[in-house]
Amino acid sequence: MESINKKDLLWMYRAMKTSRYYEERMEKAYLEGKQPIFNIGAGPVPGEMHLSNGQEPAAAGMIVHLTQDDTVSATHRPHHQAIAKGVDLKKMTAEIYGKKTGLGKGKGGHMHLFDPKVKFSCGGIVGGGIPHAVGAALANKKKGTDWVAVAFIGEGAANSGAFHESLNLAALWKLPFVLVVEDNGWGISVSEKKSTSVASNDLRASAYGIKGYHVKDNDPLEMYKVSKEAVERARKGEGPSIIEIETYRFLGHFQGDPELYRPKDEVAGLRAKDPIERLKAHLIDENMITSEALDSLEREIFQEVDAAYQFAIQSEYPNPEAALEDVFC
């Protein structure tokens, strides 16, 4: 089996650890002002909040193979994907806090993060980002580039009309497109077993005559390997692929979700297989880095994330009249 180089594995570890610490901070920041009685509109971070703790391998294992010229379309649970793609962390955090220094001047919030500099976008409509990424792939092909477009979705979005229509065209036109399905087992509170007729969504690739890959048990190394092949195929003009990764959602569908639908021991079992700890152990066991060097790296990550939050907190809110700006009639 092909080995993975140290540089890429360390990049993945940094992206995954940054995302995890970022969201652990957000988990606390979001609840400020919302306790003891949960009020979704209260506190410095109003609105819904969807965190991706546990799902980091899906983003890092794919985006490690992408460049700034490649397009990523993400979901309503986008932080791990945004961080891996290189979205400006300070502006992203300010956007989530609703500040005028944010990516969208504080008007989009955490589900609508747009950073054209790194070709990243996300949205709250389930499956809505698939056609956008296919459109980017079509543009890439027409321009004669080797740029790739990647769409991330949850497994529930694979049952949407946009999934079929987009993949049909991507396959028909042999576009440089990769669809990553993050299967965390739950479409909000509905088990995949009760909503989907196939065992895994990579099997649907055969319906479009394209390549399908399945990554078991949230394995960051396997995600790296299949993503590398899918991206290379896309760059060479060999058409689109579907990758489904069995990933973990450590937290609820949204913050404040009572999670009454989940078996009581499910989360504990998932946390026992934390992919970040597994990757860390691999790096040390393969003598790629020492635990002391990783500790130093983690301190750098903590400082970077803390600085982003401090920037957001200290930034100003937009003036009320700004609500009339950037409006199209």
Rank of each mutant, 00 (worst) to 15 (best):
E2A: 11
L10H: 06
L10W: 00
M12Q: 09
M16I: 13
K17L: 13
S19G: 14
Y21Q: 09
Y21T: 06
Y22M: 14
R25C: 12
A29C: 04
E32S: 05
K34H: 13
P36K: 12
F38R: 12
G41H: 15
A42R: 08
P44A: 15
M49W: 11
M49F: 10
M49D: 01
L51F: 06
G54F: 02
A58D: 04
A59N: 00
A59F: 05
G61M: 10
L66R: 01
T67D: 15
D70W: 14
D70G: 00
T71F: 15
V72E: 11
S73D: 00
T75R: 11
T75P: 00
R77F: 14
P78F: 14
P78V: 08
A82Q: 06
A84N: 05
V87P: 04
V87L: 02
D88F: 07
D88R: 11
D88P: 00
K90P: 09
A94G: 01
I96Y: 09
Y97W: 14
G98P: 11
K100S: 09
T101W: 03
L103N: 01
K107V: 09
H110A: 15
H110T: 03
H112M: 07
L113I: 05
K119C: 03
F120Y: 15
S121G: 04
S121C: 12
G124W: 10
V126T: 10
I130A: 04
I130H: 14
H132L: 13
A139Q: 11
A139E: 05
A139L: 11
K142S: 08
K143P: 00
T145L: 12
D146A: 09
I153V: 13
I153W: 07
A157W: 01
A158S: 15
G161S: 15
A162T: 06
H164R: 05
H164F: 07
E165Q: 10
N168Q: 11
N168E: 08
A170M: 10
K174A: 12
V178R: 08
W186F: 12
I188K: 10
S191T: 01
K193V: 03
K193S: 14
S197W: 13
L203A: 11
A207F: 12
K211A: 13
G212E: 06
Y213N: 02
Y213Q: 05
D217G: 02
D217W: 06
N218R: 08
D219W: 12
D219N: 14
L221H: 01
L221R: 00
M223P: 01
K225L: 02
K228L: 11
K228H: 09
R233T: 00
G237K: 04
S241E: 07
I242L: 05
E244A: 13
I245E: 12
E246M: 12
E246F: 03
F254Y: 15
G256S: 09
D257W: 10
D257R: 08
D257I: 06
P258S: 04
R262N: 09
P263K: 15
K264N: 00
D265G: 06
G269N: 05
G269I: 05
A272D: 04
K273F: 14
D274H: 14
D274C: 15
D274E: 13
R278T: 01
L283R: 00
L283E: 02
I284P: 05
I284M: 15
E286I: 07
N287V: 07
R299Q: 15
E304W: 00
V305T: 03
A312W: 02
I313E: 04
S315Q: 07
Y317N: 13
Y317P: 03
N319E: 14
E325S: 07
V327I: 14
C329H: 09
